[in-house]
Simulated assay, not measured.
Amino acid sequence: KANILAHKYENPTPIQDKAIPHALLGQDIVGLAATGTGKTAAFLIPLIDKVMKQKGERILIMAPTRELAVQIEKELAGFARGLGFRGMVAVGGANIGPQISQLKHDPAFVIGTPGRLKDLLERKALVLTQFGTVVLDEADRMLDMGFIDDMRLILSKMRKERHTLFFSATMGKDVEKLIGDFLESPVIISVKTRDTPSSIDQDVVRIPRGKDKFEVLAELLKDRDFSRVLVFGRTKFGVEKLAKALSRLHIHAESIHGNKTQGARQRALEAFKAGKVSVLVATDVAARGIDIPAVSHVINYDLPSTYEDYVHRIGRTGRADMKGKALTFVQERY
């Protein structure tokens, strides 16, 4: 309880309020909730309670990206401080050796991406029958990223009698099929607010024909109000190039994208969170599931490819009762 209060969680968010009681009762849950709704705590709090009350209980958490897995583990460490059990992260892009060693200690929580979990399973380092509970976080993203076969394989190797918690921002056909195949009469909890929160002020920045949009971005970023800005680009190469070009103008910028090592991404993220860097340039995939508190502005430097991506991008600002601003660059043709 003290750990929860230390997180400044005094009142539960809607998803926590609705999900925690069912999870404590051991019921399967489908939680339809976007990032930024407090869903991580909605499954961690009841599951920590379970681990404390049921000796030997182990929990597997699947997440789409390395960043999200690391973040869940961080939150777990905060909630479970001083309680005498541990969690570990099993993700690609990091050496598998230390992960195999950690698994020998039977950590209560194993948090990983489907690809690496499958790898550990095949090496017999991970024994899934020891886990009585599984969480699928951002299941729709895992499907989008092509993890369906790995997810099905992992779930099929788990005990039939298990507790399954399933979280997704959207409910498509594939998601429904997965729920139908692997969950036992789940309680469906939806806290879908309107697509875009009212705390986000959305605007378009028109770039006149012949004007360089990089110059427009650089001008904007010199404004003091742009204190912590997330800029979205379309490609890994473009994002890297943009961050370097901004740095040359003495605008403190870092980038996160798929070509960077896990360590480099983590360092960029930490520098941005700590305020050492005021601009973080990211691709859609790299920004999935990372938690960045208090972003003042989100700038769509390149247009998102889908409406879903747009909602996901701008949802990074205006979180937890704070006002945010989202700007989308549009080049005028004429």
Rank of each mutant, 00 (worst) to 15 (best):
A245F: 10
R162K: 15
S198K: 12
G210N: 04
I4F: 13
A63T: 12
G78I: 07
L220I: 14
S168P: 07
G263H: 10
A23M: 14
Q71N: 04
A287H: 08
A34V: 02
R86M: 10
K104C: 03
A90Q: 03
E332F: 11
G315C: 11
F232V: 01
R248K: 12
I61K: 05
I290G: 02
K1G: 14
E122Q: 10
M142P: 00
F214E: 02
I111H: 12
K222L: 06
G180L: 12
E57T: 12
H252Q: 12
K124T: 09
L155K: 04
A287G: 09
K325G: 00
G84Q: 14
R81C: 11
V330P: 00
I29M: 10
K192I: 00
D181A: 15
Q130L: 11
I111V: 14
L60M: 13
G31A: 13
M171K: 01
T193E: 09
R224V: 07
T129R: 13
S227K: 09
T129S: 13
L44D: 09
R224G: 10
K177L: 09
D119S: 00
Q54C: 09
I48H: 04
L5S: 14
A2L: 15
L249T: 14
A80V: 03
P304D: 12
Q16E: 03
L221Q: 06
L249F: 10
D149G: 01
G132M: 03
L44E: 11
R81F: 07
H297G: 07
V89Y: 06
L327E: 01
I96C: 01
L32H: 00
I188F: 04
T37I: 03
L153A: 07
T306V: 05
R58G: 06
L178F: 13
L120G: 05
L178H: 14
H163N: 02
V298Y: 11
G172L: 06
T35N: 06
S168G: 04
K213G: 00
K236W: 02
E57A: 15
